[in-house]
Simulated assay, not measured.
Amino acid sequence: MTSAFVAATDVLIPATLDEDGRIGATEALSTIKLVKDLGMNPDLRVVGIIPSIVPGGRSTLQDAMAEFLADTYGSLYRDDLVIPRHSVRQQTRFACVPITDAPGREAQALADVYDRILTASGVEA
């Protein structure tokens, strides 16, 4: 992952609303700091931490984790940009095809979410 941070200009960090997401966001930010501090990519910019693979309903754990991420990362945490859990994401991943190649409303909805995230965060696709 470090080589991706060296080559990137901007980073969006997806975080599931559970302990794995909290740990992943923390580790990603630590790695990004290291990459910047070592001069490998001093201009690398974190543009957001995005709630990812969020199921339709709400749970106490999800609410608590969202609150933790918001309190810890402030404006970096973008609860206005949520990647929902859709089975098409796993299906296309297994089939090694882009979501945009999948048929159906779920695939289109997920592609629209990703487009909105990139547009709102100022990252070019």
Rank of each mutant, 00 (worst) to 15 (best):
I49N: 05
S121F: 02
D10P: 01
V123P: 00
P55S: 06
G21L: 07
L69Q: 07
T60P: 02
P98S: 15
P55T: 06
Y114W: 08
K33V: 02
E19A: 15
A64D: 15
D37Y: 00
I53L: 15
D101G: 00
T26E: 12
I50E: 03
M65Y: 04
D20W: 12
L118N: 03
D79K: 12
L81C: 04
F68D: 13
V54R: 14
D115R: 14
T26S: 15
D63H: 08
I83P: 01
D79I: 03
G104P: 05
V97G: 01
A107H: 10
A70D: 14
T2S: 09
R93G: 14
D20M: 02
L17G: 10
G39N: 09
H86P: 01
S3Q: 11
F5N: 07
R93H: 14
R78T: 01
N41T: 09
P98T: 09
T9E: 15
R105H: 11
S87C: 01
P98M: 08
V47Y: 00
D43W: 00
S75L: 05
T16W: 00
T16Q: 14
E67L: 11
S59H: 07
V123G: 05
R89N: 07
A7R: 12
K33F: 07
A120S: 14
E19L: 15
R78H: 09
S121I: 02
I83L: 15
P14N: 00
R22I: 12
E27H: 12
G39M: 04
M1T: 11
V6E: 14
A111Y: 03
L34K: 15
R58V: 09
F68K: 08
L29D: 05
F94H: 10
